[in-house]
């Protein structure tokens, strides 16, 4: 029953997105929705390693940039279309996730977080010095001139992102409620005890970093087509990276719904404030929300809701 309800909602949201492209002409709304959806995928990706597995890290967003640059490189060299670029970014970033995971996962806690931060800087340096994709000057992407049946280019990119986001939600939910998900939760709670309960911790952690990397890459692959100009500074943007951490923390990290709720809430608030107040203020807002949630509700919105629900049941 519950499974079918989930898929009904997924399909309904997708159809809702299609209807929106027919009804709304103002391109701003699709730009804003694109940004929110991108943040949603990144929040989900971060949460698979940081939330489900408990390996809090600052480097995940580098995979977003690597995904974007995979897109640029393959578009330039082979002229691949967007769907193939997304698949390629998923594979490249998944493999890098696996490799980096293998190197860093023997570290724990703060040490792991710092190692991932270092890894992000290494990637940024590499790309800044890679002339083929523009180096520090950045790279332009020519957007296609036809955009299927959509009224504008941005509508098409929005629908692509909507599909990716829904896929990411489905993957995250599947992972969360599976045997693997329970293994990951056991690792998060106590890795030694998990291992002694028969959980192959290294293998599961590598699955976790691979899926995280692939999803981050998927979020990044369409990015050059969205902004049409990418340079290392914008792709490795700290704000994007902080959002990917803040959103799951605010939404709740233990449940698959957490990062989704966090991303929708924070992302929407940010857009509203950017437009109506100032774009500087929204950075402050994320900071304040993060501090409030970490001190007052460390389990996030989902955690608060579960607490309330359990109390009511009693």
């Amino acid at each position: 029953m519950k499974i079918s309800a989930f898929w009904v909602v997924v399909v309904a949201i997708f159809v809702g997105g299609l209807v929106l492209t027919e009804v709304v002409d103002n391109e701003y709304y699709f730009t804003a929705l694109y940004v929110i959806l991108q943040a949603t995928i990144m929040a989900i990706a971060w949460n698979i390693l940081g939330g489900f597995t408990g390996y809090v890290n600052f480097g995940s967003a580098a995979f977003f940039a690597v995904g974007a640059y995979t897109s640029i490189a393959l578009n330039k060299s082979l002229g691949l279309p967007l769907p193939l670029l997304i698949a390629a970014a998923a594979i490249v970033c998944g493999l890098i996730g696996l490799g980096v995971g293998y190197l860093t996962l023997r570290l724990k806690g703060v040490y792991f977080a710092i190692a991932t931060l270092a890894m992000a800087i290494v990637f940024e340096t590499l790309i800044t010095n890679w002339a083929y994709v523009g180096g520090a000057r950045g790279a332009y992407i020519l957007t296609p001139e036809t955009f299927l049946w959509f009224k504008s280019y941005i509508q098409m990119v929005f629908i692509v992102m909507l599909m990716l986001a829904l896929t990411a939600v489905a993957i995250s939910r599947m992972l969360n409620s599976s045997r693997i998900g329970r293994g990951l939760a056991a690792i998060r709670d106590d890795e030694v005890a998990a291992e002694c309960a028969g959980v192959p911790t290294l293998r599961l952690k590598l699955i976790s970093t691979t899926v995280m990397g692939a999803l981050m890459g998927v979020a990044g692959a369409p990015y050059p087509f969205f902004v049409t100009f990418v340079d290392p500074v914008s792709a490795f943007n700290l704000f994007i990276a902080v959002n990917a951490i803040a959103m799951p923390m605010i939404g709740g990290t233990a449940h698959w719904l957490g990062p989704v709720i966090g991303a929708l809430l924070v992302g929407t608030t940010q857009e509203i404030i950017t437009v109506n107040v100032s774009s500087e203020l929204n950075i402050l807002l994320v900071g304040i929300m993060l501090v409030l949630f970490i001190t007052l509700a460390p389990q996030g919105i989902v955690g608060l809701w579960l607490k309330y629900w359990r109390r009511r049941k009693k």
Partner: peptide
Amino acid sequence: KPFRSMTVLENLRVPLEYA
């Protein structure tokens, strides 16, 4: 070293499913 995010019953599910 209980799995703190889980109920007592769920704690047993991990070794049952894995080991």
